[in-house]
Measured scan of single mutants.
Amino acid sequence: KELVLALYDYQEKSPREVTMKKGDILTLLNSTNKDWWKVEVADRQGFVPAAYVKKL
């Protein structure tokens, strides 16, 4: 499975999103959308801005 690194803190703004902290390592589930990537963090799945994460 592919992992991404959170480059910035992100606070979810809708139930479809997830909160992450800078430095978090997240499991990447889907990166087909260039703006929003689906990730899993702490047993929750949701979207984060693609610009806020980097593939490892």
Score class of each variant (00 low, 15 high):
Lys22Met: 08
Trp37Leu: 04
Gln11Thr: 14
Leu56Asn: 03
Asp43Leu: 08
Leu56His: 05
Ala6Pro: 00
Val4Asp: 01
Met20Trp: 00
Val4Ile: 08
Trp37Asp: 01
Lys38Met: 15
Thr27Lys: 12
Leu7Asp: 02
Asn33Tyr: 08
Leu3Arg: 11
Leu56Gly: 03
Val39Gln: 00
Lys21Glu: 07
Ala42Trp: 11
Leu26Tyr: 11
Gly23Glu: 02
Phe47Pro: 00
Val39Met: 02
Leu56Trp: 09
Leu26Thr: 01
Glu40Ile: 09
Tyr52Pro: 02
Leu26Ala: 08
Glu2Ile: 14
Leu5Asp: 01
Gly46Met: 05
Leu26Met: 12
Lys34Ala: 13
Gln11Val: 14
Met20Phe: 10
Ser31Gln: 09
Asp35Leu: 13
Asn30Tyr: 07
Leu28Cys: 09
Ala6Phe: 02
Leu56Pro: 03
Pro49Asn: 03
Lys34Thr: 11
Ala42Ile: 12
Val18Arg: 02
Lys38Asn: 08
Lys38Gly: 05
Ala6Ser: 06
Leu29Phe: 04
Ala51Arg: 15
Val53Cys: 15
Arg44Ser: 06
Val39Trp: 00
Val41Trp: 07
Leu28Gly: 01
Ala51Met: 12
Pro15Ile: 10
Leu3Ala: 06
Val41Asp: 13
Lys54Gln: 13
Asp24Arg: 03
Leu26Pro: 00
Trp37Pro: 01
Arg16Gln: 13
Arg44His: 07
Ser31Ile: 06
Pro49Arg: 03
Leu28Ile: 05
Leu7Met: 09
Lys22Ser: 07
Ser31Met: 09
Leu3Glu: 07
Gln11Cys: 11
Leu5Gln: 10
Lys1Cys: 15
Lys34Ile: 10
Ser14Asp: 12
Pro49Cys: 05
Pro15Gln: 09
Lys22His: 06
Trp37Arg: 01
Leu3Asp: 04
Lys13Glu: 08
Leu3Val: 08
Glu40Val: 10
Lys21Arg: 13
Val41Tyr: 12
Gln45Glu: 11
Leu7Thr: 05
Ser14Gly: 13
Leu28Asn: 00
Ala50Tyr: 02
Lys21Ala: 09
Thr27Leu: 14
Lys38Asp: 04
Val4Asn: 00
Val48Glu: 00
Leu5Pro: 00
Leu7Ser: 03
Gly23Arg: 02
Asn33Gln: 11
Phe47Ile: 07
Asp24Val: 05
Val39Asp: 00
Trp36Arg: 03
Leu26Gln: 01
Gln45Val: 13
Leu29Cys: 08
Val48Ile: 09
Trp36Val: 03
Tyr10Thr: 01
Ile25His: 05
Lys13Trp: 05
Leu56Phe: 11
Leu29Ser: 03
Ser31Ala: 13
Gly23Leu: 03
Ala42Pro: 14
Lys13Ser: 10
Val18Glu: 01
Arg16Trp: 15
Lys34Gly: 10
Gln45Ser: 13
Val48Cys: 04
Ala50Cys: 08
Asp43Gly: 15
Glu40Tyr: 06
Arg44Gly: 07
Asn33Leu: 11
Leu7His: 03
Ala51Phe: 08
Lys38Ser: 07
Gly23His: 05
Pro49Val: 02
Gly23Cys: 10
Lys21Phe: 10
Gly23Gln: 02
Val48Met: 02
Trp36Leu: 03
Glu17Ser: 06
Leu3Lys: 11
Lys22Phe: 06
Glu40Cys: 12
Tyr8Pro: 00
Tyr10Lys: 00
Leu7Gln: 04
Gly23Asn: 07
Gly46Asn: 00
Tyr8Arg: 15
Lys21Leu: 08
Ser14Leu: 09
